[in-house]
Amino acid sequence: MIKIKDISKAFGDKTVLDGISAEFDKGKTNLIIGSSGTGKSVLLKCIVGLINPDEGRVFYDLRNFTEADKEIKSEIRREIGMLFQGGALFDSKNVEENVMFPLDVLTKMPLDEKRDRANLCLKRVGLENSNQKAVSEISGGMKKRVGIARAIVNNPNYLFCDEPNSGLDPQTSILIDELIHEITHELDITTIVVTHDMNSVIGIGENIIFLYKGHKLWEGNHTEITHSGVEELDDFVFANKVMSQMRKQ
C-alpha cells in the first residue's frame, strides 16, 4: 500500500499539484487519470522520488519515504519497478541486457541466474526470441513489454507505469493493460498507472483518482465513474464519442 499526504508542487510560480492525498491499495491496479498537462506525471515522479514535492509526504507501507535517510530510501527503491512513457530502454544495450540491468546494479546474482531471471520475465511479457535484438530494432509495443519485464525483474513490491499505452494501437494497448493487471494480481503488488485512456479506465481501473488542474476531484472505481456527478470528470469520461452515446442510451 502506498499513501500520499498533502502533496504540493510548483514550478516557479506555476502550481502543478495542490495538496493531493490518496491511498493506493496492494494487489490492485490503481489509476491516476486526468487530461494532459494536469500534473499526473509530476505526481508519479513525486511518489517515486524523481521530483521532490514542495510539501507533503509519501508512505510506502507506513515507511515515510519523503523524510527517510539514504539507507531506507535505497531499500525502498530496490522494491520499485517503473515503466516509463516511452519505455526508457537503454539504447546502448540489447533487450536482454536491458532486462538484466536492475539485477546488475541492485543484486550480486551470478550471471547465469540473472540471465535465467531475465528470460523468465521476457517470457512472461510474451517476448521469447528477441533477447539479442537492439532497442532500435523493436516496435513501440515491444519496447513497452521489455520495459515491463525490466520493471518486474527484481521482484518489486511496487509497480509504476506512466501512460503504458500511449502511442500504441488499440489492440496492443489492451494487451499491455491486461498484462499490467495480471502481473499486479500474480505478484500481489501495489501498482499505480497514470493514464488518460478511457479504455484502460474501464478495463483495469480498480481504484481511480481523478486529477483536475492539480486537485484531486474524485476517487472511486470503474463502475462508479460513469455516475460520479462531478462535471469535470463527466467531461473527461464522455469526451469519447462511443462513451457519450452510451450515456445517452
Binding site: 515522479k45 517515486v48 522520488g49 524523481l50 530510501k73 535505497s74 527503491r77 530496490r78 520499485i80 517503473m82 516509463f84 512513457q85 516511452g86 526508457a88 530502454l89 537503454f90 539504447d91 540491468f101 536492475p102 546494479v105 541492485l106
Partner: peptide, 14 residues
C-alpha cells in the same frame, strides 16, 4: 537519454 527518460530510469533504480 534525458529526454527519453533513460536518466530517470537510472535514478529510480537508485
Amino acid at each position: 537519454m534525458r529526454i527519453t527518460e533513460q536518466i530517470d530510469a537510472l535514478e529510480v533504480m537508485g
